[in-house]
Amino acid sequence: MVAFRLVLAVTLLLTHSFAFQSDELLLDDDEFGLEGGARSPDSQSHSPSSSRKRFSDSSSDSKIHFSLQHAFGDSDFSDAGNFSARLKTWSHGAQTLTKLRFKRDPLTDAELKKFRELLQGDDFYRIRLPSNVLSPPGKEYIISSVKARCLPGDGLEEHFVIHMEGVNILAVNYGSPGACPYPRQLKLPGKWSFKSHTVLKNSEQAPRTPIFAEDVLGGEEGEGEAVKPIEKSFWAKYWMYLIPLGLIVMNAVTQAMNMPEEQAGAQQPGTAVQRGASSGARRR
């Protein structure tokens, strides 16, 4: 029993860490594929999508392919790689892509040369995808480009975010996974092979507008709710009267203080010195 629990815990732990790994690598998107360059297969990249079987039971699947084309600067587009994905047809007729995989063709010597020139000239490396995956190229090709000097890291690192709407591709965010600060320095990659990350993205739902029942009833009052203009404080309104008043009062008080003093002093004999002192105080 204990052994069983232990096994269960271990498997849970394993699956958990498994899923965790993929999350860490691949942002928070629902579907993704990841594959290393052709010459440097990455061992961890085959991890995703194993836990997502439950979706495919209810609907029919078929496998489709579409190609990535690239161009160096202003050159013509040529094939650069292949995307493969499962086309899932939902019971209500909608079709979506899942399990996107990408395989880059290795760069040929001519392409390598062109790429070097791009790096020298700080020019654009351009890619394009069909706008419809079922009937390529669809309405038009989706183009995206990046300054070639952004790509070299360890190898050549690229990152695709493909925005989908059903079987249509709207746009592709293409670039390096990390930073590319300006001014871009010329840096040759260690390996002339692409390390690709791909992400599929669909539209999010907008959050719904909150509805409060009481406000629906009292909606009119809510609109008419008038914020009263703030009353100026008493001090702000009448400072110009208060300050002279205060001075007068103070004056009166000092005078009143002096009066009894004088009266008291008058009764005492030899008050000349005192009187002098008191008048001095009054003058202040």
């Binding site: 654009f124 706008s131 669809g138 989706i142 183009i143 709407e165 709207l170 746009a171």
Partner: peptide
């Protein structure tokens, strides 16, 4: 000038 990128909205839905 040259085109750097394009976004194509499917005309049947948007």
């Amino acid at each position: 000038f040259r085109d750097l990128w394009s976004i194509v909205f499917p005309s049947e839905s948007e």
